[in-house]
Amino acid sequence: MSEQNLQGSLINSELIASLAARTALETPGVLRLEPTIKGFLASLGPAALANFHISGSQDGSYRHDGVVARINDGTATVHLDIATDIAYTALSVAESVQERVRENICHTGLNPGPVHVHILTIEASPGSIPR
């Protein structure tokens, strides 16, 4: 039994997803993670989801509103869908999310793979002054 197996059972994709989500939300300029179609359908109940098959959902990846994480050969890959605050420069926010998420993945002992960030909307936060 290799170490990787042990690692896989301790640190699964769900944990990485939640770590990435938390890290993103703590990054200045990130307002929230954005729910995807699947998240929306899940909120409607199992009947809606039954008709909606996501290919690749059985590959060990974990999806939650706005985040997908996958572990492959000890490397974690993350996709994040975010809404950013208009008071910040969106690209800088996204790059800072990438950096922080990769850093936190390192702390788990896994190798940080690519962190893909998709900026879905740019909005004013309740406290910010629009440019």
Binding site: V78, T84, I86, A90, L91, A94, E95, Q98, E99, R102, G113, P114, V115, H116, V117, H118, I119, L120, T121, I122, E123
Partner: peptide, 14 residues
């Protein structure tokens, strides 16, 4: 380190 994408909508709202 990964890609950064933006939706056309986010840009057009700006």
């Amino acid at each position: 380190y990964g890609t950064v994408e933006i939706s056309e909508q986010a840009l057009s709202s700006l």
